[in-house]
Nucleic acid binder design. Sequence first.
DNA 1: ACGATGATGAAC
DNA 2: TTCATCATCGTA
Length: 173
Amino acid sequence: MRKILTQKFFDRDTKVVATDLLGKFIVRKIRGKEVSVMITETEAYDGPKDLASHASKGMTKRTEVMFGHPGIFYIYLCYGMYYMLNVVTGKKDYPAAVLIRGVEGKNGPGKLTKFLKIDNKFNKKLAIPKNNLWLEDRGVKIPENNIKKTPRIGVDYAGPIWSKKKFRFLVKG
DNA sequence: ACGATGATGAAC
DNA sequence: TTCATCATCGTA
């Protein structure tokens, strides 16, 4: 079973999308060849008040993509060397996104984007096959009790409330 | 524990 | 135009 995830999938609550993305596949086409990996770890960045989200600073040149339509990528350079892969969720004008933090066999969002050769060219692009980067449901279902929730990584700066929220989701084992 | 490394946003 | 900051990772 190969079902391409559409904008409808991402037009839902960010935390729901983040948990639902576990077990889904990222497919990347490089020079005509498809590479696919299963998502095992995600984080939710939800709304204008989430101090851990870049969008908490309001709409800027960098963050305007998070205010855009669901199902587009938000990609940016972190620490000068690693690209982060996010998918925008929720309605237009509501800033939210899910960070793809890990896939099967790879841990760490920086390694993931390096492996899949993802860079800021994909920023603001739709997650569709035409753009050589999209997401698929291949029938893998992660049961609720196999999903672990923890605080997000590297967001201590977000203050005692937002840095402690359990917006990180990963597959156990 | 720390440096590499560059875009970003805010202050000046 | 300068400055501090950062959703990381490899090496130590």
